[in-house]
Write a protein that binds this DNA or RNA. Sequence first.
DNA 1: CTGAAAGCGCTAACAC
DNA 2: GTGTTAGCGCTTTCAG
Lengths: 345, 345
Amino acid sequence: MTHGTVAAPGRPTLEEVARLAGVSRATVSRVINASPRVSPEVQAAVEAAIAELNYVPNRAARSLVARATMSIALVVPEDAHRFFGDPYFADIVQGISDRLDASEYVLNLQLAHHSSPSDKTRRYLLGGNVDGALVVSHHSGDHFLASIGQALPVVFGGRPMDEEGTAGRPTDYYVDVDNRHGALQGTRYLIESGRRAIGTITGPRDMPAALDRETGWRDALREAGLSDERIAHGDFTADGGARAAGELLDRHPDLDAIFIASDLMASGALVTLAERGRVVPRDVAVVGYDDSLYATRGPIPLTTVAQPTKQMGIVMADTLLRLLAGEQPDRVSLLPTELIRRESA
Amino acid sequence: MTHGTVAAPGRPTLEEVARLAGVSRATVSRVINASPRVSPEVQAAVEAAIAELNYVPNRAARSLVARATMSIALVVPEDAHRFFGDPYFADIVQGISDRLDASEYVLNLQLAHHSSPSDKTRRYLLGGNVDGALVVSHHSGDHFLASIGQALPVVFGGRPMDEEGTAGRPTDYYVDVDNRHGALQGTRYLIESGRRAIGTITGPRDMPAALDRETGWRDALREAGLSDERIAHGDFTADGGARAAGELLDRHPDLDAIFIASDLMASGALVTLAERGRVVPRDVAVVGYDDSLYATRGPIPLTTVAQPTKQMGIVMADTLLRLLAGEQPDRVSLLPTELIRRESA
DNA sequence: CTGAAAGCGCTAACAC
DNA sequence: GTGTTAGCGCTTTCAG
């Protein structure tokens, strides 16, 4: 395929296009950027030259002058396995991706797992590689993520945590599902079904979503005058769910229902329940959270709290895009949850 | 710079650092790039200024002059769900990520699903945003991917397909597992166990890995003088596996073993087998492929062909890094497979 | 050891 | 309409 004997010409530059088309660089730039005032003939000539040279504008040069990279980062402070193992992320990414496809921006996924605390990611984000960032699965330990907001437009997926582990700062943009209300729905359903010894398996306690779901569970129990002592902590993995279910059963043999903060953990809990000879839902009713693949793929279809995850991705991307366009989107978008009734409760 | 430099406190520039430190821009550049010949005092002063200003070099500017972005793309021609649903990708990404963490390069994940055939990804890749690309899950339809190799160092995960759907061109770099041999191992094991009516469920026929595994299955059967007519095509999803297993059973009721080209498909096939009342491995022995989570998480631990997936990611990244460093790595790296014996066969 | 000067490839006033 | 002229922020000879 290498026809010519001439030395590798490297990527063609705008200047070469200009020369081939017999015009100035400014004119080439105009047709590339679809400026209205270019004569048809010249435009055609330039386009021909571009095609012939297979020219693609150099982004670095363009970014440098335009002060914009037209790309945004999706920062995921998780290791690859956690990220890939949870269908929740797939939905979010799909939503983000869909919304971005309708824009000029490209998505740039940055896996920033804690284990390598190099600040390559930080330098990347702050070094002008992206115009804005989307952050999902934010832990309270992620200090630098909490701070990049000052230097770059950032939209969080899920309420971000401040260093005290309390509420999101009013300066942050975030979209979240109404986790507390979702947990409330799920737990109330258990209560209405006549359950009384209702436990919960939480997510990691450094994540707001996990905390909010725990609060919802607790609120439902309290409004019904029931005890909220049956609690075990998981980590949003199947293994963690299995382990936590074991703890719950050990400490509270009377357990007759569990509200579990994610379907993935519920899938693990189901295994433990089966091993201990508890029949679901007869002996122990289970309500999950997410309505992910795990809700329908397991041995028992899960009653679960559905959240519009893909929609969340769309809204996140949309919010950031508006920010970049200089608009003033809502700082907080709370998406509704819905209880899906299946067989486990 | 005609107006006073009282401009908005955007990101600090190298020039501001130079002014604060009382040196020239060249000197600042030297300390940033760890040039050996800078006096300790000056170096300290510059570093102090950098810290005080919270300065991070602008990548676009640096790329422009250095003609390198220090970032590489991981291109995945799949939609988000396929990508996230398959643990195979998690391992590859983890491997790539690990290797890259030890380098100066950052990883840049580009989901390029066919559904949006905009050539944003192409422009991104060719527009000087990355210094090289890693491509996994390459389908034969992805023409542009087959062509970027001419403009950019590219390493494929899995043997790339040319337009005739036959073999990889000798000009491509790729790392692959020895799929044919793995399938051979798995199928031979079935034969040695006394099975005779051995079917297969393949992956998508536009993927070399799927084709190679099919070939291995066929070769094992032929060398044993057995029929290779029991074949059904899946698509590397659980549903596809379930469906294909149904077809196989319908058409060949005498089936006593299946070699399935992925554990994920095998997990689906297991469901179908159970529905049809076939006990595994008593009635039908099953050998999967991948040794992924699905091999151990399902109802029956899967005998499966393990491939060093994470290692594959490491080698891919390593090959590209060598290429970028001007070295001459092997064009083809074939990684070995291993049969893992569990309960399904 | 350090500074001055010349661009990297592109866009954006400002002229003509 | 189209060309000219300045840079965007950084690295890099080349002097001193």
